[in-house]
Design a protein around this nucleic acid. Structure first.
Lengths: 223, 223
DNA sequence: CGTTGCCACATTGCATGCAATGTGGCTCGG
DNA sequence: CCGAGCCACATTGCATGCAATGTGGCAACG
């Protein structure tokens, strides 16, 4: 990437971390891939110091595993661990649901509605990647409506950590259609500020999404 | 500290991070304190490279804030943010409660019981610091019983992040006595594997703890 | 006397060199 | 032919030097 282009002093580690994080959460860097410092420094045009600082950031986010003297590799996560993480995500979103219905501004809801419309467009256009990305954004925005920075931070970190696994499930077109329908229920509940309902709709949305995804991951469904 | 003593190659950043983290969560390093790299390198006997890597780790844990060209300082947290973080901690412990009642081994419960007995000892001896530390350990162990690594990891990180604030509330002797009583209810619920009950007891335990702590922080109660 | 601009010093950000460790291939003995 | 040991090379861990940026104090000016 951007060899020669120099990022601002004081933010290089952050930019490098973003770059690697994108590659990991998008699945471009497969699990257990070893990362070579020299290669990356040449790709990114920064020295090893900010690079290694980025490694430490990503390690504490759970995306990289660093073995002393052997370097960094993309953390491997089992479907079992993903399932447990989703349980945590559901808990976080449950708290968010009730709070979001209390604290969301109309502008925030409109923004989510706009994202939803855009997502439906991506669905109809068959743009899976775009759909998936907007989907994630919508969930994050709902959590952000809860006006709880800790909640937003943990939700973002954890959903990114398992993102590469969840992508699989959306490739099933039945699931895709159903998810769009569920999202409409979610928006309704939010718009009518029915916290308990939103919580339950979100919960079953995630559970049914995970059932599909797990089936795909375990090879029970051929694409 | 340990000038001259050299930590093993490959773990220095981690050890430095632990060292600083202890100082922050224990309150020895006050909020907004600027941290000077040169001073720390001399105290710890490591060079600036692992030190700066440790800074990045602690920054992503939310304990340090790094301003470019101005260095690291202990992140300031408002009581408002602490309250919001506690709401998240309660959500995490709620998930943990149900799961812990299903997955806890008898040995784990015995271990928690032993910690509880030790904590009562510290209480009777008036050893506040020791009491507080065991208290935190008990809650972490309960979460660990849930056998969900993500849950354990997030719970630990977040409880450490706000630890320095919660200490204040325990200095009220009424609260201290009540907390011990509540902990007995918690252990009972866990031992009888009553998940829903455990969840509710934990929830009200944290809420009443926070009410006291907030009052102390806001200066409504003189020590 | 207060304010502004400037300069020297302190501190951080990053690149790089060196030492330590890991790794793959080769030799040599069985 | 196979395996163990060894050696050269690749890679990482850390220390340190240099450049960029921030900061506090002093001087000059109003």
């Amino acid at each position: 990437m951007d060899i020669e282009k120099q990022w601002p002093r004081g933010q290089r580690a952050a930019f490098v971390a973003n770059f690697i994080r994108d590659q990991i959460v998008s699945g471009e860097l497969a699990a257990s891939t070893r990362i070579n410092e020299r290669v990356l420094t040449e790709q990114l045009g920064v020295s090893r110091t900010p690079l290694r600082e980025a490694f430490k950031i990503l390690e504490s986010e759970g995306l990289l595993t660093i073995e002393p003297n052997r370097g960094a590799m993309v953390t491997a996560i089992s479907p079992q661990e993903v399932e447990l993480a989703i349980e945590v995500l559901i808990a976080l979103e449950s708290v968010a649901a009730e709070r979001a219905c209390k604290h969301a501004t109309d502008a925030q809801i409109d923004e989510i509605q706009a994202l939803h419309d855009e997502m439906v467009g991506a669905w109809k256009a068959g743009a899976l990647m775009r759909y998936f990305h907007i989907n994630q954004t919508i969930h994050q925005k709902i959590v952000d409506c809860a006006a709880n920075p800790t909640l937003s931070r943990l939700y973002m970190a954890e959903s990114q950590r398992i993102r590469r696994f969840r992508y699989a499930g959306n490739q099933i077109s039945d699931r895709w259609a159903r998810a769009v329908y569920e999202h409409e229920q979610i928006l309704d509940a939010l718009r009518h500020r029915q916290g308990a309902l939103l919580r339950e709709v979100l919960r079953s949305h995630h559970l049914s999404g995970w059932r599909t995804t797990r089936a795909v991951l375990e090879g029970e469904i051929r694409l």
